[in-house]
Lab assay of single mutants.
Amino acid sequence: MATKAVCVLKGDGPVQGIINFEQKESNGPVKVWGSIKGLTEGLHGFHVHEFGDNTAGCTSAGPHFNPLSRKHGGPKDEERHVGDLGNVTADKDGVADVSIEDSVISLSGDHCIIGRTLVVHEKADDLGKGGNEESTKTGNAGSRLACGVIGIAQ
């Protein structure tokens, strides 16, 4: 089992970053940390998408990683996509320092995120509470600013 993974985020604009993942036990939580720069100040949706395909930019990554066919939600919700990591918060300089621990994603097994795409979005994720159909699919997080395929790390 891989215990570490990394993702280099890039987009068409100024947004870029490096996100690290570490899972010490196969059924334990995954620590997610790193930094994203070039964002507007505020909240930005942060999700693992189904495919590791960036051939047409971030759009070819498909929908959120959702092997259990659930509705979109927040990272602490029972009803959520596996890939729903909530929001990252950018400061006035456009930098989001990421520090998350998640017990639904994994670096092995059915919820493995390796080979899938991590995406940072234009807007805040409403965590499935926006009151419309799009909220239950995407959290109304808007366009995909930057993305990268999650790969095994040393």
Rank of each mutant, 00 (worst) to 15 (best):
A2C: 07
T3I: 07
T3C: 14
K4G: 04
A5P: 03
A5T: 02
A5C: 04
V6S: 13
K10P: 01
K10T: 14
D12F: 11
G13K: 11
Q16L: 11
G17F: 01
I19C: 04
N20E: 02
F21S: 07
F21W: 01
E25Y: 06
S26R: 13
N27D: 15
P29G: 07
K31V: 09
V32Y: 03
V32D: 02
V32W: 03
G34Q: 00
G34L: 00
S35P: 03
I36P: 04
K37T: 14
G38A: 05
G38E: 01
T40G: 12
E41N: 04
L43Q: 05
F46V: 12
F46D: 03
H47S: 05
H47M: 13
V48L: 08
H49P: 04
E50V: 06
F51C: 14
D53C: 15
N54I: 10
N54S: 11
T55G: 10
A56L: 08
A56D: 07
G57W: 09
G57R: 07
G57H: 11
C58G: 09
S60Y: 11
P63A: 15
H64N: 15
N66R: 05
N66D: 13
L68M: 05
G73S: 06
G73A: 12
G74D: 03
P75T: 08
P75H: 13
K76W: 14
K76T: 12
D77I: 05
E78W: 12
R80W: 06
R80S: 06
R80Y: 04
G83P: 04
L85R: 01
G86W: 11
N87Q: 04
V88Y: 03
V88D: 00
T89V: 06
A90M: 02
D91R: 03
D93R: 09
D93G: 11
G94R: 01
A96C: 15
D97W: 12
V98T: 00
S99G: 13
S99F: 07
S99Y: 14
I100Q: 06
I100E: 03
E101G: 04
S106H: 04
S106D: 06
S106E: 04
L107A: 01
L107H: 02
H111D: 08
C112E: 03
C112I: 02
I113N: 00
I114L: 07
I114V: 10
G115I: 01
G115R: 02
G115C: 10
R116H: 09
T117A: 09
L118E: 00
V120Q: 00
E122L: 07
A124V: 09
D125W: 07
D125S: 11
D126S: 07
L127F: 14
L127E: 12
L127I: 05
K129M: 09
G131T: 06
E133S: 14
E133I: 06
S135E: 15
S135F: 02
S135N: 08
S135H: 04
S135W: 04
T136I: 15
K137V: 05
T138G: 15
G139K: 02
N140K: 14
G142L: 04
G142R: 07
S143D: 11
S143T: 14
R144G: 13
R144P: 15
R144N: 15
L145D: 10
L145Y: 10
L145A: 12
A146L: 07
A146Y: 02
C147F: 11
C147V: 10
G148D: 02
V149A: 06
V149M: 09
G151F: 15
I152G: 08
I152S: 05
A153P: 07
A153G: 13
